[in-house]
Amino acid sequence: MTQALETLGRAGLRSFERLGRGQIFMAYVLAGIPEIALRWRLVVHQVYAVGVLSLVIIVVSGLFVGMVLGLQGYNTLVDFGAEESLGVLVALSLVRELGPVVSALLFAGRAGSALTAEIGLMKTTEQLSAMEMMAIDPLHRVVAPRFLAGIISMPLLAAMFSAVGVYGGYFIGVGLLGVDEGAFWSQMQDAVDLRDDIFNGVIKSIVFGVAVTWIAVFEGYDTVPTAEGISRATTRTVVNSSLAVLGLDFILTALMFD
């Protein structure tokens, strides 16, 4: 009995310790950001690795999600004779929820895991220690540019996801199923608000970008320096950041759309 309590307590303390370590880690990384502004080329290279290379999966998924929304929405709306509202349905679901959330989940799988594995391997092969020996702070030189690149890339990727998705819905709805083109766009423009819907979607994707990249770089930096440690850290990144995205999405939705 006491044994079980002990185990529980130790697990609880350890997770709190990790949480605290994650925040101290983040404070150091944020302190390194002004320095990075002087060497923005580092950030550019990371935006390439994190953002540009995720572009294909984001655009293709966005297109398919939009097309599926078009098909499913049409099948339901046509029963009520409201198929002209297809544009509203597609645009609102993409801009408010699916764009930020699905692209953040894909981002966690595509870019987050890569960040963790890269930093984890750097730690395992003692490249980070070597940097410290040369009086270069790896938190500033390695982690900060990657963190910044994640925050820059995420809203852009989410916006592209939503934009491509709207066109996917348009191709299916207007092109294939014969919804009136004028009604599709005009009802959409009537119902979608710039501040309430689009800006809130962008805010969501920025929050998700911070959460996913933070988890990814911290897990990488906190890796147990073995092959098994890297694999565990990568798995944890994908699982934890997906859960964080979905949880944060609930909170943000409750706050934004009351």
């Binding site: 852009l156 592209m160 939503s162 423009q189 979608v192």
Partner: peptide, 16 residues
Amino acid sequence: LGVAALFMLAMKVSNL
């Protein structure tokens, strides 16, 4: 491209 996508959302999708 990202900024263009945002711009497209603002101009074409919303009621700006």
